[in-house]
Amino acid sequence: METISRRVALGLVAATLMAGSVGAAQAAELVQVSLWDKGASTEMPMGLAYAMPGLDLSKATMGIKASPGAVKAGEVTFNVKNDSKDTVHEMIVMYLADPRKPLPYVEAENRVDEDKAGDKGEVSELDPGKSGTLTVELKAGKYLLICNVPGHFGAGMWTEFTVDP
């Protein structure tokens, strides 16, 4: 009887260890994202959207910082914090089918056409100082993390993000 109990116990330990290692192998990649700006009273320049000719991001008054800037394909968790003192921001993950082309833009609304652009998920409007989380399954390729609050993308609020195979 003691031998059977010991075998059962060893079997349970082995199964637990195997399940734990499978879970660890499939753990989500973690990305810290900061949404920042220089304050609501700062004039927002336009023409700083991704893939615009003559792009000079040194003029940007707002932006997105992602760390790390590249992860392995699979489940990715974005921990997003709005580091602004007075402006609402959001973060949307966009897949770039062709990284040389700009995202479809609706000039009248000063924002990206999310449906046409390939929206993979988002952390919706975050009040200043607030945080949110998004977990998505991403395949290898180039992505943009953007804020699509009207005017923000055109003011330079985006960053490139890579998913490696």
Rank of each mutant, 00 (worst) to 15 (best):
M1K: 02
M1H: 08
E2K: 15
R6D: 12
R6F: 06
R7C: 03
V8H: 11
V8Y: 10
A9K: 15
L10N: 15
L12D: 03
A15T: 10
A15V: 03
A15G: 10
T16Y: 13
L17S: 04
A19Q: 03
S21G: 02
S21R: 07
G23P: 01
G23Y: 06
A25S: 10
A25H: 05
A27T: 04
Q32K: 13
V33W: 05
S34D: 11
S34Y: 06
L35S: 03
W36R: 07
W36Y: 09
D37E: 10
D37Y: 00
K38C: 01
G39L: 10
S41E: 09
E43P: 00
M44Q: 15
M46L: 05
G47F: 00
L48Q: 04
Y50G: 03
M52S: 15
M52E: 09
M52A: 13
G54S: 07
G54Y: 09
G54R: 00
D56M: 08
L57I: 06
S58A: 09
S58G: 05
K59I: 12
A60L: 06
T61V: 13
M62C: 14
G63F: 12
G69F: 04
A70T: 13
V71W: 11
A73Y: 04
A73P: 08
E75N: 13
E75W: 08
E75L: 15
V76R: 04
V76L: 05
V76A: 11
T77A: 14
F78S: 12
K81D: 04
K81G: 02
K81E: 14
N82L: 06
N82T: 03
N82S: 01
D83P: 01
D83T: 12
S84F: 08
K85I: 02
K85T: 07
T87Y: 03
H89T: 02
H89C: 01
M91H: 13
L96Q: 15
A97M: 07
A97Q: 14
D98K: 14
P99I: 05
P99H: 13
P99F: 08
R100F: 05
K101G: 08
P102I: 01
L103I: 07
P104C: 04
Y105A: 11
Y105G: 06
V106F: 05
V106S: 01
V106M: 14
E107P: 03
A108N: 03
A108V: 06
N110I: 00
R111I: 02
R111P: 04
R111H: 05
D113L: 03
D113R: 00
D113V: 04
D115L: 03
D119M: 06
K120T: 01
G121R: 07
E122S: 14
V123A: 10
S124Q: 05
E125Q: 12
L126H: 00
D127E: 12
S131L: 02
T133W: 01
L134M: 14
V136Q: 09
L138W: 09
A140I: 07
G141A: 12
Y143I: 04
L144H: 14
L144G: 12
L145H: 11
I146G: 08
I146A: 02
C147P: 10
V149P: 06
G151T: 09
G151A: 12
G151N: 06
G151F: 02
F153H: 14
F153D: 00
G154H: 02
A155M: 05
W158K: 08
E160L: 15
D164P: 00
P165C: 02
P165T: 08
